[in-house]
């Protein structure tokens, strides 16, 4: 049971952090924040169609709505009538409101409430078992997240150079014949798929932290993409293990604790990173000031 919680936490963290790397590099993490909220509408709509909370169609519907969110936000941004972040801030509350209204009006007696979607509880995840032919194969979430993790790994290994070039130089990528738009939407599909898979164990608000936190730590610690991915994965595992342990010791929300630990590791990286850290920056400034003083003095002596 305990081991299962650790396992789920690690797998969820790994699956989330992989697309997070490219989100951080593209600076479009708030887009993922929007997606994690709007997938709720997808889940609700798909639920009304199939009437089954365990149907895989829920994941499909929610992923589609996630991609639709991105499309709508970008269409709004292209009109130039409002700034980029305003477009995000208008679309996702709208979708989210529709979802909440639908839930309160029509799904009052089903186990589908905004609470479980937004906040999730990792501690309950092992209770939903995967049973095949009467045999117990472990928690359901573990399997679904494992599949999503594999999809993410496959996508990133197969499209590594395409992702790299479209992230760092979309203009060049387009000139070379890669389609930045296609890759962008492929990445966003993965983000929504991951968000949907993770929502009932982690809760959709904290998914953002799982996606962005480790990747930002990696970003702060290195300048190379491959190394950044490696550091991101290590940080993700570390955060989830420490978070689960701390949550058990303090007897509190597991996903929340992991998010707190993620924030702390990120802050530490921001402070102490050898290349981009703020303490290093202060030291550099001191050194420069000293050097400048020395130079000024020596030029005085010379003259």
């Amino acid at each position: 049971m305990l081991v299962e919680i650790y396992l789920i936490a690690v797998v969820v963290a790994l699956a989330c952090s992989l697309p997070g790397v490219f989100l951080v590099l593209r600076g479009s993490t708030m887009l993922s924040d929007a997606i994690t909220h709007t997938v709720l509408l997808g889940i609700v709509l798909a639920f009304f169609v199939v009437n089954d909370l365990n149907s895989p169609f829920l994941i499909v519907g929610a992923t589609l709505v996630g991609v639709l969110t991105v499309w709508l936000i970008e269409t709004l941004q292209h009109t130039k009538l409002l700034s980029n972040d305003s477009a995000i801030g208008i679309v996702f509350p709208l979708f989210f409101s529709i979802a909440i209204i639908l839930i309160t009006r029509y799904a009052g007696n089903v186990h589908l409430d905004a609470d479980s979607v937004l906040m999730g509880e990792l501690a309950f995840a092992p209770f939903r078992r995967m049973t095949l032919f009467g045999m117990d194969f472990g928690p359901k979430v573990l399997w679904s997240m494992l599949i999503i993790l594999i999809i993410n790994v496959l996508f990133i290994t197969f499209f590594y150079k395409e992702l790299k070039i479209t992230t760092f130089d979309p203009g060049l990528a387009a000139a070379l014949g890669f389609s930045p738009v296609f890759l962008h939407y492929a990445l966003m599909t993965l983000v929504s798929l991951t968000a949907v898979g993770a929502y009932d164990s982690v809760g959709s608000i904290l998914v953002v932290g799982f996606m962005v936190g480790p990747a930002l730590t990696g970003y702060l610690l290195t300048h190379r993409l491959k190394r950044m991915i490696l550091i991101t994965l290590i940080t993700a595992v570390f955060n989830s293990l420490v978070g689960v342990k701390a949550a058990f010791v303090l007897d509190t929300s597991i996903a929340g604790m992991i998010a707190v630990v993620t924030g702390i590791t990120c802050l530490l990286a921001f402070l102490f990173s050898p290349s981009k850290g703020s303490i290093q920056a202060i030291r550099n400034r001191w050194k420069q000031r000293k050097n400048l003083k020395k130079q000024a003095a020596s030029s005085h002596i010379k003259s």
Binding site: G209, V212, I264, C266
Partner: peptide, 11 residues
């Protein structure tokens, strides 16, 4: 923004 948001919410 997103890191601060999620870690504060987690807290």
């Amino acid at each position: 923004l997103s890191v601060v948001l999620s870690s504060f919410f987690g807290l």
